[in-house]
Design a protein around this nucleic acid. Sequence first.
DNA 1: CTGAAAGCGCTTACAG
DNA 2: CTGAAAGCGCTTACAG
Lengths: 330, 330
Amino acid sequence: MPISIKDIAQKADVSPSTVSRALNDHPRISTETKKQIQELARSMGYVPSQAARNLVTQQSATIGVAVADYLDPFYVSLLASIEDVALANNYDLFVSSFYRDRQREKKLFDTFYEKRLAGIIVAGSLIDDGYLSQINRSIPAVLVNCFSYPYSVSADKLSGVKMALEYLIGLGHHRIAYVSQGVSLRSEFLRLEGYRLALREHNIPIDESLIVPGDGGVIGGIKAVSQLLDLAEKPSAIFCFNDMTAIGVMNALQKRGCQVPRDCSVVGFDGLDITGYFHPSLTTIRQPIFQLGYRAAEMLLDLIQGASEVGAEILEPELIVRASTTHAVN
Amino acid sequence: MPISIKDIAQKADVSPSTVSRALNDHPRISTETKKQIQELARSMGYVPSQAARNLVTQQSATIGVAVADYLDPFYVSLLASIEDVALANNYDLFVSSFYRDRQREKKLFDTFYEKRLAGIIVAGSLIDDGYLSQINRSIPAVLVNCFSYPYSVSADKLSGVKMALEYLIGLGHHRIAYVSQGVSLRSEFLRLEGYRLALREHNIPIDESLIVPGDGGVIGGIKAVSQLLDLAEKPSAIFCFNDMTAIGVMNALQKRGCQVPRDCSVVGFDGLDITGYFHPSLTTIRQPIFQLGYRAAEMLLDLIQGASEVGAEILEPELIVRASTTHAVN
DNA sequence: CTGAAAGCGCTTACAG
DNA sequence: CTGAAAGCGCTTACAG
């Protein structure tokens, strides 16, 4: 049985109210008794009950974070930056992954609500706008990479994809494949849009057989390659939905005896640290992951503290040229 | 203001007790009113307050998980398997990383206790046995890879290291370097012990200059390599504390023009999926990560449900031979 | 099968 | 500056 405020009060011969005030650094309390009680509490090994506190204050000092998949390092890095801000502001984090599953994502909101969390951050949501707009009624929420949501912070996907494509086109590539996520979400839509736009602007005809589905992970990238290498006219470069996909793509190419970048250039998307250590190191579009998480947390904190409008921020991605890309031979 | 059990009671014209019973599937309640109330609750969008429930029942249905570093995929995979078990048993997870920092790890225990969590799992603890033994007084705890703790599940490090070393020795390697974690914890001690033991058994003299410190991550591996390549007599194989270290080691070797495995073999430890996609793919000792997490969660659940003894389990690792190792040329 | 009552451990107006 | 009291939203013996 944990010791309570009452136990301390009894031992200190004061009322529980006084103990509570001492422990919470309330102004209306004599410095002396405050110190005494704090000391006593420590010596008794007192640890407050969050449940009791949350119940009476009708709020909790924990922030919920739902991410699409924490087996993807992108989300883990995001988490780390959110955690930085949260901890610095005395919030803790309740983290959960919905493993790219809509049903699990929806269930998470119930869990968050049962905990009466102070606010939530969702990254990689699979739920459409209609549902998302409901969230906000009860708990402040900030979305990452879902810029249609009023409170959100996103990387400019369209611009990122165009950077990648223009870079490849500049290297002389004309047959550029795209390995998608395989699920029609906005993040997918934007990349595809950017892909088509960039090609069109450079008068490169769009060959639909070069657009193959992945699954957002390594396996999807591997499967996509076997499809692409069976094509009569193979691609000279492959642009991937994200870095995990690109890892699979590079691996599969190398397994099939196709040298990267000599025989085929590969470009990823995300800018995961780990891709810098691959051989060859991966050329990729870096999302400002740290900033994304940092701002999301800051905006959420503002919202929690009563700000009525925090807006939707869009951050610029960046092209990181490494060793997985080179000129087209022709 | 969220709606409460009282609101439902009023609308249904019954007492709050009845509502509580209906919602909790209590046996002593008529099937009809139960259904009615459940239906009503749903239609009113009722979501129970965990704080209130936890306060009155004096426990919570959430399990705390503390991991050393969730930027290391090892811990993320572990988390995923723990989550499987927890969710299947209607527990949710409160996860936190202490980023290989003792102080942060200690603070976590306070947080766990404030939440009156049902139990905790710690992986990669930096705290010594003395402190660990205190944890158990208040909250059931299971440790992962800390087999001196009474309730724990660990991979047999010593045996794993010997497998790796014997494999390399079998390939004809005599100058085998070891890149450590750089912190003297049991997990480090065991690896070093296994390293020395294996060499001694095969009458290979131990050259202390071949034992260099890493940091458990990629950067440490990179730094270690520059130290090793400056040696007059270079190693022909490098055994690494873990896979992340090995990734750094491979990268640094390749950067210095040293081909893996032709010029130097590399062996990791952990068996992370991602290392199978590197080029060359990494030979490594696979810890049974899934089993580790799965059993830890099961044991904790047993403990929570009153089991007095769950013991300390030790699981066997496995050598995965891939492409980063080959015969010594001599 | 159902209700009234007590209580979980806190916080916070309200008096003094 | 301090205390007595009420109440947060539930659960659960105790009666009936």
